[in-house]
């Protein structure tokens, strides 16, 4: 039941506890309690909308930056990761296996802003050995959602 609840919320974070209770044939109070618990212990970290900024007039650049870094004695990659993820422009930081160490996803107003961030904030860090910045040219799909025109219900009434 808990897994079902999390899957429901992961699919649509805007559902009310009442709706979820009905979907699972449970009491609303119980659902509230479980969600509160998840929010407290950090299983549920937040709720966000998925925005396609390309459909607005806001300029919005996304970049994926590969970082090779020197791990720190005793703290491994955690210290440098923390240093980086605390910048609000940074959307995601992943520790990777393979040819580089940290994958940093940056979102900024413009390409220039992103470039400056890499040059002024990331590259000078002592632990950073090298950076490779890749700009996203177009988002086709993010977080399981396809970026494109809104879906219309084209199903025919047949039976």
């Amino acid at each position: 039941m808990d897994r079902k609840l999390l899957e429901i919320l992961e699919g649509d974070g805007r559902l009310s506890t009442k709706q979820i209770a009905m979907m699972l044939s449970k009491e609303e109070g119980d659902i509230k309690k479980i969600i509160d618990e998840y929010e407290k212990n950090g299983v549920i970290l937040g709720y966000k909308a998925i925005v396609d900024w390309d459909k607005t007039d806001r300029e919005y650049a996304t970049a994926l930056i590969e970082l090779k870094v020197t791990p720190q004695y005793n703290r491994g990659f955690d210290a440098i990761a923390e240093r980086i993820y605390n910048y609000p422009e940074v959307q995601s930081v992943y520790l990777m296996s393979g040819s580089y160490d940290l994958c940093v996803i940056l979102e900024g107003k413009t390409i220039r802003e992103v470039a400056l961030f890499v040059a002024q904030r990331l590259a000078p860090l002592e632990a950073v050995q090298s950076t490779a910045t890749h700009f996203v040219l177009r988002k086709y799909k993010d977080k399981g959602v396809i970026y494109g025109p809104a879906n219309f219900d084209e199903r025919g009434n047949c039976n």
Binding site: D153, R155, G156, N157, C158, N159
Partner: peptide, 17 residues
């Protein structure tokens, strides 16, 4: 269904697929 197809702004719970 034919009657329905002529109407606008209808929220439908009729589709059998």
């Amino acid at each position: 269904f034919d009657m329905l197809s002529t109407m606008k702004d209808v929220i439908s719970l009729t589709v059998g697929q």
